[in-house]
């Protein structure tokens, strides 16, 4: 494990609890992501992965514990302020604006930083996803699943985030498309954006990530480097089909 003690982490959750009414979804979750890393969080359906990302955005709010970003405590911050700090979310199920064009979707991503960098950023995004450029004036709802996922990622990148959170970007996509998306994530990380990836697709995610955490029933069960977790018998049994 390459724990960086002492210096501030980019994102840090410390003993965070979160609940939906009586349903306790996160229990004493502690994890951290350092600048430049790709970190993944794997877990089964209902483990609390989406909740963990949502808690960073304050919905639901952490009932106890602390969330820090760049050393600053953001536990109580308003949801719409989080993006302005430089955290972008690619939500589960993409949540693109399907009635709006691809271009408009991308422009929505610039809300948190203003329109100053729109043109160069669009060029960068189109280099990464040439398909989106071809479909610039098309309604986003008419894109294929993979293209919609690309659009969701591109929209998040338009806000120039320092930290990109992704919630199951491989969900419902063909293996070939999944591979493409994961290659893009590696590119994004190489270009200097820290990536925190939530996945059920443990095999892909752990190969991509430097480090990983395993979430079970709202608790962090295991953590380690990607390779350590890939080799871990418990992980192999539960998430990799037991080979």
């Amino acid at each position: 494990m390459n724990e960086t003690q002492g210096g501030a982490h980019l994102l840090e959750l410390q003993e965070v609890d979160a609940a939906y009414g009586p349903v306790q979804a996160l229990k004493r979750v502690s994890l951290h992501v350092d600048a430049g890393e790709i970190v993944t969080l794997i877990g089964a359906n209902g483990a609390g992965k989406s909740t963990l990302l949502a808690t960073v955005f304050g919905e639901p709010r952490a009932a106890r514990g602390h969330i820090r970003f760049n050393g600053r405590d953001i536990t109580g911050i308003a949801t719409h302020e989080v993006a302005k700090l430089g955290i972008a979310l690619v939500p589960e199920g993409r949540r693109i604006f399907s009635g709006m064009t691809v271009e408009e979707n991308l422009l929505m991503g610039t809300i948190c930083i203003g329109p100053a960098h729109v043109e160069p950023d669009l060029i960068k995004v189109f280099e990464m996803f040439p398909r989106l450029k071809e479909r610039l004036r098309q309604r986003a709802g008419t894109l294929s699943g993979g293209e919609q996922q690309m659009l969701a990622i591109a929209r998040a990148l338009m806000g120039r985030p320092g930290l990109l959170l992704l919630d199951e970007p491989s969900l419902g996509l063909a293996p070939l498309v999944v591979r493409q998306i994961f290659e893009t994530l590696a590119e994004i990380a190489a270009a200097g954006t820290t990536v925190f990836l939530v996945e059920q697709n443990a095999n892909h995610a752990l190969r991509l990530a430097g480090r990983g955490y395993v979430l079970v029933n709202g608790e962090i069960r295991l953590s380690g480097t990607g390779n350590e977790l890939l080799a871990n018998p418990e992980v192999r049994k539960a998430y990799l089909g037991g080979h």
Binding site: A83, A88, I111
Partner: peptide, 13 residues
């Protein structure tokens, strides 16, 4: 269209 997506993008609904 999507209030949740908007808020995560930094829009004060």
């Amino acid at each position: 269209e999507d209030e949740i997506a908007c808020r995560s993008l930094g829009i004060n609904h």
